[in-house]
Amino acid sequence: MAIEQFRIDDRLVHGQVVIGWGQPLGLTHLVIVDDAMVENAWEADLYRMATPPGMTLDVESVASFAAHPQPLDRHLGAGMVLTTNVDTMRRLVEAVPGIRTVTIGGLHHQPGRAPSLPYVFLSTEDIANLGALAASGVAVIAQDLPGSTPVPLGDLVAAGGV
């Protein structure tokens, strides 16, 4: 399976993912990487129920994904890997070589986060983590939907004024 996108999105599986990207990319498989969710079966079930027929969903921890990032090969078609925050994605990138681009699809307001885009709010810690990703050679962009203009990390940080 080709992983079309490594996406940071605090809503994980929602309309932008299953329809907005899912239909044009022909996504057939989603992987949520979230250490806490692995322990919460009900939460994983909630996301599974929201995954359309014809699309499968796995929930992995960073460690389990890093231990066998190739189980995705058993799936045909295209896939997307989702994390709910920047920190998890940074740990994933450190653990799994070969990730070239990370897309911020949605990081919404929380105390301590400042707006960069209508759908991206970043804290100083987020910016430090994203900076570490960029320094390791990963391209970081923000793009909620295929029709939106991708915004590079430098512009995000400048817009946020954090």
Partner: peptide, 15 residues
């Protein structure tokens, strides 16, 4: 946790 699933399900059914 229910933001995404209720978004995905509603978007598919309604929009």
């Amino acid at each position: 946790a229910c933001c995404g699933p209720l978004g995905a399900s509603g978007d598919r059914l309604v929009w």
